[in-house]
């Protein structure tokens, strides 16, 4: 049966540290939260842009959900400046320490709490969690179809969306029934147009400063979810050890000038690339 009216669009936005500036807490395998401010996970900017284009076609509202500590608020204001109508921060000590299963469960609970939704957009992966697993897990909790690694929205109607997704060896065109979840890669094309996030206008930034950020806690979700499945308590995985991956580095040999080509040729020979 065709559905009418505007679309309820949900965007999952992860406030994440800028990994080029972040310091790490090796003991706990996390980012030292005090070392960096949180900003919108870069992939999620594409989700916002696609959401805006869908809204332009059908009308409706864009609601963003972010599970993060309270100091993530500026990232949510940034989302509003970029075009999100309503930004909700899921924040509670009981959400802390969540792995992908608990994170996705909490996000899915919040989506249920919103009532109705037509499409959920999220990023391919986050720069800190780096899993690409949260989106598909949210879709599973909600029992709706999803497609990950989407590089193009071919077409969208009120009932269905057609996308191109990277499966690994090839790009497939997939037609999904709404409500569905779409995880976006980059670069991404919406119909024929290249989607590129741009800086919000000053007037929008000022408007966002005054906007209301709703904060939801665990109790608020208790009618739609089992609070025992939130946070560390609901997380089956545990980090037992963590260390820097890049600390060791390599000890490079430096060459320049006339020496360069001879060294390169010798190296290529030693590596068996040429003979």
């Amino acid at each position: 049966m065709p559905r009418w009216g505007a679309l309820n669009i949900v965007v999952l936005i992860k406030p994440a540290p800028d990994i080029t500036k972040a310091k790490f807490d090796i003991e706990r395998g996390t980012v030292d939260r005090s070392s960096t401010t949180l900003e919108i996970n870069p992939f999620d900017l594409y989700a916002i842009e696609v959401a805006k284009r869908i809204k332009r076609l059908f009308g409706g509202t864009i609601t963003s959900l972010s599970m993060a500590p309270p100091h993530a608020e500026p990232a949510l204001r940034d989302a509003i400046a970029r075009g999100v109508d309503r930004a909700i921060l899921l924040s509670d000590k009981r959400f802390a320490g969540a792995d992908t299963l608990a994170t996705s469960y909490t996000l899915a609970a919040a989506i249920r709490k919103l009532g109705s939704f037509d499409i959920i957009l999220c990023g391919e992966k986050s720069v800190d969690g780096d899993t690409a697993h949260v989106g598909p897990e949210v879709a599973e909790h909600l029992k709706i179809p999803h497609i990950s690694f989407v590089i193009r929205v071919v077409d969208i109607t009120r009932d269905r969306i057609i996308v191109e997704a990277d499966y690994g060896d090839a790009y497939y065109t997939v037609d999904l029934k709404l409500p569905a979840l779409i995880a976006l890669s980059r670069p991404v094309i919406f119909k024929e147009e290249f989607v590129e996030p741009s800086m919000p206008k000053i007037s929008d930034v000022l408007r966002a400063k005054r906007a209301k950020i709703e904060v939801w806690n665990a109790d608020y979700l208790s009618d739609v979810a089992d609070v025992g499945r939130f946070g560390l308590a609901g997380s089956p995985t545990r980090v037992v050890k963590a260390y820097y991956a890049l600390e060791k580095g390599r000890m490079a040999r430096f060459v320049k000038g006339d020496e360069s080509i001879i060294t390169l040729l010798n190296t290529l020979k030693e590596l068996g690339v040429i003979q």
Partner: peptide, 11 residues
């Protein structure tokens, strides 16, 4: 994790 900056061992 963290864009390849950290290696974590997980149970």
């Amino acid at each position: 994790a963290f864009t390849g900056n950290i290696i974590a061992h997980i149970k």
